[in-house]
Every structure is written in C-alpha cells, then in structure tokens.
C-alpha cells in the first residue's frame, strides 16, 4: 500500500484497538515525533463517528423495508383487525 494508506491503517489500528495496535508508549512516542499525527487521528475518529451514524441510518432504512414487507398492505390490515 502507498504510504498515505499505511498511515490510515496505522491510525485505524490504534483507534479501533486491533491486535496490531502499537503499545501505548510507542504510540505516544510517535505522537511526539510526528506533529500532525494527533490531528490526523482526531479527523479519522470523526470519520468513524460519521460512518456509525450512516450505518445506523441504513439499518433503520432496512428495518422500515422489513416492516413494510411483513405488515404492509392486507397483512397490516389483518394485524390491526386482529389486535382490536
């Protein structure tokens, strides 16, 4: 992978705490040596937060579709009538 993508991977390993994450002291040393690392890591953390929101939105959309498939049309009418 090119160096820019390797940097994304390095930050990802720390943020998601994967088995390949650096020990805390090594990561802190990198932060000291690389002035932009903290800013890049914060930007990447915000990307993950946005992706989480986007994922939730998609999951909700999928659930609305499942609801429509199960209870839309005559099935919905039947269920409401049964509940009365």
């Amino acid at each position: 992978m090119r160096p820019e993508l390797e940097r994304l991977r390095l930050i990802e390993q720390q943020l998601l705490n994967t088995p390949a994450a650096l020990p805390a002291e090594d990561w802190n040393l990198r932060l000291l040596l690389d002035g932009e690392l903290a800013v890049d890591a914060e930007a990447q953390r915000q990307l993950y937060q946005g992706l989480r929101q986007a994922g939730r939105q998609q999951l909700r959309q999928e659930l609305r579709q499942i609801h429509a498939q199960l209870y839309g049309g005559w099935r919905g009418w039947l269920r409401r009538a049964w509940a009365m």
Binding site: Q46, L47, Q49, G50, L51, Q53, A54, Q57
Partner: peptide
Amino acid sequence: APEESTFAVLDYVE
C-alpha cells in the same frame, strides 16, 4: 446534539 462534524461526514458518505 451530535458533533457538527458528524453531520458533515454523514453528508459526504452519501
């Protein structure tokens, strides 16, 4: 409310 940047990211994911 969620951070403003989260909304921005959401927009760009789309």
